[in-house]
Design a binder for these strands. Sequence first.
DNA 1: GCTACATTGTGCGCGCGTGCGCAATCACGA
DNA 2: TCGTGATTGCGCACGCGCGCACAATGTAGC
Lengths: 208, 208
Amino acid sequence: MALEIPEVVIDRLPVYGRALDLLKQQGREVVNSQELGERLGVTPAQIRKDLSYFGRFGKQGRGYNVARLLDELNQILGLTREWSMVLVGVGQLGRAILAYDGFTPQGFRIIAAFDDDPNIIGTTVDGHLITSVDELAATLLERHAEIGIVAVPGATAQGVIDSMVASGVKAILNYAPIAAQAPPHVRIKDIDPVLALQSMTFYIKDQD
Amino acid sequence: MALEIPEVVIDRLPVYGRALDLLKQQGREVVNSQELGERLGVTPAQIRKDLSYFGRFGKQGRGYNVARLLDELNQILGLTREWSMVLVGVGQLGRAILAYDGFTPQGFRIIAAFDDDPNIIGTTVDGHLITSVDELAATLLERHAEIGIVAVPGATAQGVIDSMVASGVKAILNYAPIAAQAPPHVRIKDIDPVLALQSMTFYIKDQD
DNA sequence: GCTACATTGTGCGCGCGTGCGCAATCACGA
DNA sequence: TCGTGATTGCGCACGCGCGCACAATGTAGC
């Protein structure tokens, strides 16, 4: 049945999950695809189709049980466990990532942070002792981490990614402004505000 | 001819532009679609098709003049001018955004920064005097800005977005973890590392 | 100037994602 | 227990984006 699920579908599931989380906090027990769709700017059919890839979670005539559907989505996405991450690059951006309080509640924990600046190595940032990037591989041998975060300048980013891949990291969140290369079995997502800005200007450049 | 250009195409153009920029810095004068595609993980046909929406920029048998194509792309995307931005939210994330040196070289300048914390208002961060968010509208009346950056917690983000829209901002870069709503004439792009992580775990949760 | 070669620009078909529309199904009230 | 109303799950068709494959076209060498 669910042998080939489009990546766009997977990308939308966390969005549904976040909305359900909010509804749950508000004490809502049931929600239908129409209301969920309105909140997220998605058609109700889209939501129902997406969910149907994984099973039948709703009840006709009522809708979806909020807590139940949220649990199902977390199960599907693998969010019922903790995920360990390593951060490379403790500049201004890296510090903001270390300080960000949105990862932990969702089960993502930074277990080690690395840099190549001797002035930073050995210091403690937000409770994390900064280690030399040369020890990345050694550290990952004893303390396993599935996810790597790249917050270094573009020039050194690909090298960092290669090291992570070699050390068995399975997914990478890349903040560096490069077209990162990785083997097929390693997932990569880019966070790139400049690209986002540069495509928006196309649409607004001729307004008023 | 170019009456309806897919948004995915527009999203790829800045990626091409960045690669061309790099090639130009390396002194390359000509590049063909095959090499460009290999560097970016895109098929050569994709690149040629995308570019054909806007004109004929290549020469058969040779390829594309790097500097020429880069200029054309910048023209198409509206990157030949400066863009003014306002930032709302000067917490850890906002500070990292203010400190980020990747915006200015691409023509994006933050002209004002706002927060609602009395302890922060009046201070100077990276050369920017932090103003009360209550003065957002008034400030935008005298100093025009086309783009808004939202770096506040999710709970207050939609309100900030509404204010920006009311003040004539035409594009918004949203770092808050919400499904932001805005009228159709205002472009929005979300920067959301947690969503990126939560979709990647789907693919890596059953590995090894 | 002519030939051989390389690379673009694009018509076309394939495949996939989206949303419509309806039958199936469940809750609830009488 | 039965009927009514609401909402899901999903078959199907439409439309769009992607990439193939080839003709068009420019380059370079002789």
